[in-house]
């Protein structure tokens, strides 16, 4: 996203792009990361709805994965996941950072 954040001509901060908070990558906050197992996913999309950070990627009504740029690792998706036959499709694991 290309955003000119500050209109220099009159030195007043002017936000020219709606939703430019997307430039702030909150994924660095994370200590746990969600892992998707598509075999157990029934695409109920509750994880997508409950994610406070808009980080569950859905295409054509199917969960495709997570946007790790923004996922803060809260774990709501994993806790609320129904999964299939008692097997959750989303599990949280400790993220290994370099």
């Amino acid at each position: 996203m290309k955003t000119k954040l500050i209109n220099q001509s009159n030195c007043r901060p002017v936000i020219t792009e709606p939703g430019n908070s997307a430039l702030l990558k909150t994924g660095t906050w994370r200590t746990l990361e969600p892992v998707l197992n598509k075999e157990h996913c029934i695409n109920c999309l509750l994880c997508w709805l409950y994610c406070p950070d808009m980080s569950v990627i859905v295409r054509d009504g199917k969960v495709e994965g997570f946007d790790m740029d923004y996922c803060k690792g809260c774990g709501i998706c994993a806790l609320e996941c129904h999964g299939k036959k008692g097997e959750k499709a989303i599990l949280m694991r400790k993220e290994e950072k370099e």
Binding site: S21, A22, L49, P52, D53, K72
Partner: peptide, 19 residues
């Protein structure tokens, strides 16, 4: 509501506004 907001992880308010 765009991602990148600074609400705490797992914040209920973000979910409410989104819905």
């Amino acid at each position: 509501l765009a991602p990148g907001h600074r609400m705490c992880q797992g914040c209920g308010a973000a979910i409410v506004v989104k819905m």
